[in-house]
Simulated scan of single mutants.
Amino acid sequence: MFSVTGVLFSLVALATATPTLGFGGSKNCTKVLPPPRTAGKLAHVGVNIAGFDFGCGVDGTCTAAGAWPPLAEYYGHDGAGQMQHFVQNDGFNTFRLPVGWQFLTNDLESGVLNSTNFAKYDTLTCLGTGAHCIIDVHNYARFNGEIIGQGGPNDTTFAQLWFNIASHYKFESKVIFGVMNEPHDVPDINLWAKSVQKAVTAIRLAGARTQMILLPGNNWTSAATFVSNGSADALAKVVNLDGSHTNLIFDVHKYLDSDNSGTHDECVTNNIEEAWQPLTQWLRCNGRQALNTETGGGNTASCVTFLCQQIAFQAQNSDVILGYVGWAAGNFDTTYVLSEVPTQNGTTWSDTLLTQSCLSPKSGSQKGSTS
């Protein structure tokens, strides 16, 4: 048991309780709903600061030793300096900080945070910049190959991890909780939604009552299939302690290369027709919102064209698409295919082509053409 604002709460009860659902299912609006006149400016624009997630495989087999903290004293890449540059030079206001579950804790069952490793991770948090920080557990809905709540760690274990993390950040209004990076090949989306519900409940019970929580779907939380694969309908039933959906935001990803893998430096689509138009329609119809926490491309002319178009469309629909977080800066080498790592020369930082042309709010991409 643990104490939450003076009330003893059992994680066993949390794992077995059925939440009171304030939403019975999604609506299917046949009429296209246009954005309101107030739309036009994205609330969250930024970059992933990678490194603490290095050593993680897509089967959730992260190793703490494989992490490369993007801290100047470890591997020379100054994640904090990058964030300061991005805020001051580009106007970014949101950073996502991926981290492996195994890096955070030595004890799976209790979820007690490894004090040494967590202190390193906490050092990177971008609160000193004034920006929002997304705490992203980067394990693909798994731990060492086994799916959370479906043969792997049970919901109680997952909830305990998030209770411990949220307890540390409960008074930080600019911390955003990213429940899990890119679930994929999850057999039962409704069981996954129940696991997400336990994490949300634990975060709120830890005292983080108002911060945003990001809810990820199946199929790598793809924006193109978020509705069609049942993720939207299942996750729409996840609620806060009071039964509301306030600040429960859908977490979606979308790359622009030929196979949506984010492994090619050329882009072939702006994703508007196949992904963003149907998703914005569903979100507006159902009164929900999403945040695109991974997107990007190579530093090529094709990616400048298509990503600028995608961002412009998202801005035009900013009532339901809250923003984007590019992949990725941090501890990647500048030769990485999707590098957004700024080059440092003394005290001067220089942005990549894609950052200068599209990702930076100062590029004007939010007002560009989507045709």
Rank of each mutant, 00 (worst) to 15 (best):
L235T: 05
C267D: 04
I321L: 15
E274K: 04
W282T: 11
T269M: 07
S318V: 06
C308D: 08
Q310K: 02
T210P: 00
I272D: 10
L307Y: 15
C308Y: 09
G298H: 06
V238K: 14
I272H: 07
G217H: 07
R288N: 02
V238G: 02
F250L: 13
K237I: 09
N218D: 15
E273W: 03
A206Y: 10
V325M: 09
S302V: 11
L279H: 06
S231H: 12
L248C: 12
S318Y: 11
T300F: 04
H253Y: 05
L256K: 03
V268C: 10
Y255S: 14
F250P: 04
A301S: 12
L307R: 10
L256I: 15
D319T: 12
K237A: 14
W282F: 15
V325S: 05
A275G: 10
A301V: 05
S302R: 13
T246C: 07
G207W: 00
L215F: 09
Q314S: 14
L241I: 10
A206P: 01
V252M: 05
V238H: 10
A232L: 14
H264R: 11
T295R: 01
L214Y: 03
L235A: 12
I321F: 15
F250S: 05
N260S: 12
G230N: 09
L307V: 11
F313I: 07
D265F: 00
H253Q: 12
A224G: 11
V304W: 03
F250N: 05
I311G: 06
W276V: 01
D242I: 07
V252K: 03
T263V: 08
G287M: 03
P278A: 01
